[in-house]
């Protein structure tokens, strides 16, 4: 995704109503590169009640090879477009960062700026919260 969270916040500020906001999220979802079908395995599934989410994580080391500059890249997909749009935003937040950065990042705050924090409330059983947990888990497991 080409746009940073700050760009998104700027865009969202321009929207006058929920309809434009959701149209934009659906649009982000439609533009999210689809995950190859062979990666949509049970293992990669983040099970949610209302829609399905798949997530893969790859650790990419830099040329020093000392593990200190390892960044995690994530790829994710869903069968629901609004969730895909939210995934696009989450990937923008998390993907390509070091485990330490990920562990310190507060997604709720970023989503609040976008007026989307309700999607992160634990009772939204849409797989989204579980995905954030999984991303943070991947990061935690690589921290000393």
């Amino acid at each position: 995704m080409a746009r940073s969270i700050d760009d998104l916040v700027d865009d969202f500020d321009l929207f006058e109503d929920w309809e434009e906001r959701y149209r934009y999220i659906v649009d982000l979802g439609k533009k999210l590169p689809p995950m190859p079908e062979e990666e949509k395995t049970e293992d990669n599934k983040v099970r949610g009640c209302m829609s399905q989410v798949w997530l893969t994580c790859q650790a990419v080391n830099d040329q020093h090879g000392d593990g200190g500059d390892t960044v995690l890249t994530f790829r994710a997909d869903s069968d629901a477009f609004i969730v895909k749009g939210l995934i696009a935003i989450l990937l923008e937040l998390y993907s390509g960062r070091t485990p330490k950065e990920i562990a310190e990042l507060d997604a709720t705050e970023a989503l609040r700026k976008l007026g989307l924090e309700s999607h992160l409330s634990p009772n939204r059983r849409n797989g989204f919260v579980a995905m954030v947990d999984r991303i943070r888990g991947e990061a935690q497991s690589r921290l000393p």
């Binding site: 929920w18 309809e19 959701y22 829609s51 069968d79 477009f81 849409n126």
Partner: peptide, 11 residues
């Protein structure tokens, strides 16, 4: 997706 439908009409 049904989830999209429910989310949008919830608004």
């Amino acid at each position: 997706h049904p989830h999209d439908v429910a989310t949008i009409i919830d608004q």
